[in-house]
């Protein structure tokens, strides 16, 4: 899932301060699960903004809504009437949702209420961790299902640096050394020989280094009619 967190209220306030009527719209998928931008959080964000703006002497109107997914036209389109009736939209979805709204409603300013953080999972309730960088060329098969790009702070491919201490990364005592995990896991699986191969520099052209990534599949593609 996509993990995100709420921006500071003052930062959001500064973005929307000049608009009188704002639609605050949440997304009921990833950001609801990570408790950053679902229906409940829309309520909190809107309430905080109303108060913060009123203290500044403004009388904002906040309309609250939450759709199933902001990253699909099917759901985004249901917002049309509401968007027509406001001056601006504040999206508490991930960056994908914010941009989907901006693309669908070209005449309306759309602002982000969240910082989209990473792809990851709730490791414990209230603790999310990044596990995938989306590099476009998955190597988990050779690393025992633990990604050195996402989980080693330096993204090293040929083994650990010398910086780990008690199994923790040199960057933070809170962070497991990704390479320690990889090594231990492959040892347990009796697959340590997999690590002996000297890996060449990674081809980053499948990462975002070639610009916006797109994926086309003829078998499921049909031209948009609307």
């Amino acid at each position: 899932m996509i993990v995100a967190e709420q921006k500071p209220i003052q930062e959001i306030k500064a973005m929307i301060a000049d608009h009188q009527k704002v639609l605050v719209v949440g997304c009921a998928t990833c950001v609801t699960v990570c408790m950053a931008g679902g229906e409940k959080e829309v309520g909190i964000i809107a309430s905080c903004l109303r108060m913060a703006l009123r203290i500044d002497g403004k009388e904002p109107q906040m309309i609250e809504d939450c759709i199933q997914r902001q990253c699909e036209w099917e759901f985004v389109d249901t917002l049309k009437d509401k968007v027509d009736g406001v001056d601006a939209v504040l999206s508490s979805a991930c960056g994908v949702g914010v941009q989907a709204l901006a693309e669908r409603f070209p005449n309306k300013p759309v602002y982000p209420a969240l910082n989209t953080s990473f792809m990851g999972m709730p490791k414990e309730h209230g603790l999310w961790v990044e596990n995938c960088r989306g590099c476009g060329n998955c190597g988990l098969g050779r690393f025992g299902g633990i990604c050195p790009i996402a989980r080693c702070s330096k993204g090293l491919l040929n083994g650990p640096c010398g910086g780990s201490q008690n199994g923790k990364c040199e960057v933070s005592k809170e962070m497991d050394c990704g390479w320690q995990l990889i090594y231990e896991r492959l040892k347990r699986l009796d697959q340590l020989e997999k690590l002996e191969e000297i890996l060449p520099p990674k081809d980053w052209s499948t990462d975002r280094d070639k610009g916006q990534r797109r994926m086309y599949r003829g078998d499921v593609y049909y031209e948009q009619t609307v």
Partner: peptide
């Protein structure tokens, strides 16, 4: 004197 000498030897 690294944490995990086995993985250091690998490298």
């Amino acid at each position: 004197e690294a944490d995990n000498m086995d993985s250091q030897f690998l490298k």
